[in-house]
Nucleic acid binder design. Structure first.
Lengths: 129, 129
DNA sequence: CTGGACCTTCCAGTAAGGGGGAAGGTCAAC
DNA sequence: GTTGACCTTCCCCCTTACTGGAAGGTCCAG
């Protein structure tokens, strides 16, 4: 299959697939005599895997690590567990921070609703922030 | 005050202050005969305001909008309320997504803990993702 | 008068994940 | 034989908020 077909099947663009190849996420495809990339069906599973990894919040660099381990013939299980653990710890922290930020902004916004502009002093930028 | 003093007082760097000036967040300071920036004390309040805006999750572009309104002699109250409302709506969505992602990853991780590598089939990248 | 700590401008680069578009080759249909 | 839809490589551009470094000017102490 050509790159356009693979892109459509995977729900992405040819640009992105070439980018993945440059970044080492997809292995270089065979070429037709004309120089066109010629993908085997397994390539679709690989692109789908990349997308699932992204949906799990992994970076392309982390996904590449997993793929590299697999490409060397090993099962990346432990590495994946570690990545997921790390991602989970990050997530907890992000969520905590966002919840705090939400509280802060809610308070600021409530204050901003109650006061009228003409009571602002001119020497400050904004009394709500 | 010179840029280094302002940077220290504001808890940032001279690089960042020049960057803020380039981005239109700080107005160009007066210059000494030698060409050094010479800030008035109000500049510190402005840098602090920028930091409070960032702490509220606003982008520099949004903070610049508020400062521009203030610089034109108007009270930016309504604009600030709108920005905070928008930020709050964004936050709700971000939090929801992160909570969903946390559930997903927790499930993936639990599965990854229970299964042993040798039961993985070789034709897939990773059974957990 | 020299050394070091400042300051100036400009240029380049970072992470992440691509997008835009040029200049050119290829393939199938009409 | 010529469109039009593909494909190729190449290089630059975008976002956000800075950071690093080079080359050069200034200021103050010893």
């Amino acid at each position: 299959m050509r790159i356009g077909e693979l892109a459509e099947a995977a729900g992405t663009t040819t640009k992105t697939l070439r980018f993945y190849e440059d970044e080492g996420l997809l292995r270089p495809a065979h070429r037709t005599p004309a120089g066109y990339r010629d993908y085997r069906p397994e390539a679709l599973a690989r692109v789908d895997f990349i997308h699932r990894g992204q949906a799990a919040g992994l970076t392309l660099a982390q996904i590449r690590q997993i793929l590299d381990i697999r490409d060397h013939g090993q099962a990346p299980c432990e590495h994946v567990r570690n990545l997921l653990d790390a991602r989970l710890a990050d997530l907890e922290q992000q969520i905590t921070q966002l919840l705090e930020l939400r509280d802060t902004i809610t308070q600021l916004r409530d204050q901003a609703t109650q006061v009228e502009p003409d009571t602002c002093s001119a020497d400050q930028v904004c009394r709500y922030l």
